[in-house]
Design a protein around this nucleic acid. Structure first.
Lengths: 229, 229
DNA sequence: GCAAAAGTGTTTGCTCTACACCCATGT
DNA sequence: ACATGGGTGTAGAGCAAACACTTTTGC
């Protein structure tokens, strides 16, 4: 079954850069390609656009199909349209980036023939197509955005100690932060709920757990509040 | 001459939100549609992607063809892919925004059958397709970006007095700024060249002219400088 | 000489930074 | 008791905000 148009059309795809964080580093989820071109190479999860489906939905669907991840934080990153970026033909890709917490999503086994795995951000193999460039763009966006949008929480479990939140910022910005200043700043925003719970299974004093309160945050934004670390 | 593919493909377009500034207000460049759908409605300049051409080039080419504008500051804004955004079929549009100074580009006569005109940002007619939404997104981006990227200069002539630069910020942020603090802040960045020229044709004391020095700015950025108003 | 905008300094308060110690818990 | 991180206060520096007057020029 073929489709015919009066003018040539570029193909359209959606690709996802999925960031995850564990106790050590920032990681990226990659899939191994099962077909040419770049068979066997690692690549960003993604796939071809479907007529009638918004590209964000395409991105989510392909992500679920290829890696099992669902219901993640996902935002559009950038659209790459260099005619040479795919050796076969002109393929325009709309790239998205996703943030997930690795404790809820441990190294996923492959769900179809392909395998998927998490890679440390400083230890990424050569990727298929221009996916290196897309990944780099995503990483820059993440670094830029995390200081003025409350997206760091997306990399953590729902309930987290402040140390862990600080770790998110330190790992992504790649510099140490002063503990007391960090706490003062983030708590003074009053967008975290202090819970009546503490950590478990730690070999020292257990820290209090907090939860990001999106409702309160959205209210404050409406009143002119601007998140900034 | 037709083109056939094994899978259905959405059409791809590039649209431009062109902002211009004069002594009074922020304006947007619109074109009147000559064909259905939305014949006679005002719309953003733009057109269909061409295989083998990067979408930014498509945007620039269509902008020049429809409005005569060339060599403008242009950045990608967002990609809109709602399947219902075009009543005919699924059309994915990659939107760009451009900044030009209106003194160099006065109200352009139409270059082909269509007419093009500048509209004040608070007095925009109902636009074709989802172009209202695209315009709104672009305006939000402009407001956000102008405080942390040196893009305000793109709306001014090459040589400008500080009052005019302050006007850019006041009109886009839509709030008054303190004259002395503004001058102190912007001059302390040392990215403006103080010229040996002054305004002409003003009915009062003529102000000194300045020029944005992109080379110096780029150098400073490499050394960690961050523009912020 | 008057209108209109250019240009210039200082004070005040606040926010960011840097820094050190005691506390609670598990082993 | 000791090791590990949890949790807290304060002083100083630097930055941002608020504010008023003198100067220059054109008409």
């Amino acid at each position: 079954m073929n489709y015919t148009y009066r003018h040539a059309r570029p193909a359209v795809t959606a690709d996802c850069v999925v960031f995850g964080l564990d106790e050590e580093d920032l990681k990226v989820l990659l899939v191994q390609r099962g077909q040419e071109p770049f068979q066997g190479h690692w690549a960003l999860p993604g796939g071809f656009a479907v007529v009638g489906e918004a590209l964000e939905d395409t991105a989510r669907r392909e992500l679920a199909e290829e890696t099992g991840l669902k219901d993640v934080f996902l935002e559009q990153l950038y659209t790459f349209s260099d005619p040479q970026r795919d050796p076969r033909e002109h393929v325009v890709t709309v790239a998205y980036y996703a943030l997930v917490n690795l404790s809820d999503h441990p190294v996923q086994a492959a769900t179809d023939a392909r395998s998927a795995a998490w890679f440390c951000i400083d230890d990424i193999p050569k990727l298929a197509f221009d996916h290196d460039r897309i990944l780099q763009t995503a990483y820059e966006r993440l670094r830029g955005k995390i200081t003025y949008q409350p997206i760091g929480f997306e990399l953590l479990p729902e309930k987290f100690p402040l140390r862990m939140l600080q770790g998110v910022y330190e790992k992504i910005l790649d510099r140490p932060l002063d503990k007391r200043n960090f706490r003062k700043k983030i708590l003074s925003m009053e967008i975290l709920e202090e819970l009546d719970e503490i950590e478990t299974d730690v070999g020292h004093r257990a820290a209090r757990l907090y939860r990001f309160n999106k409702r309160v945050y959205d209210d404050k934004v409406k009143q002119g509040f601007i998140f900034e670390l």
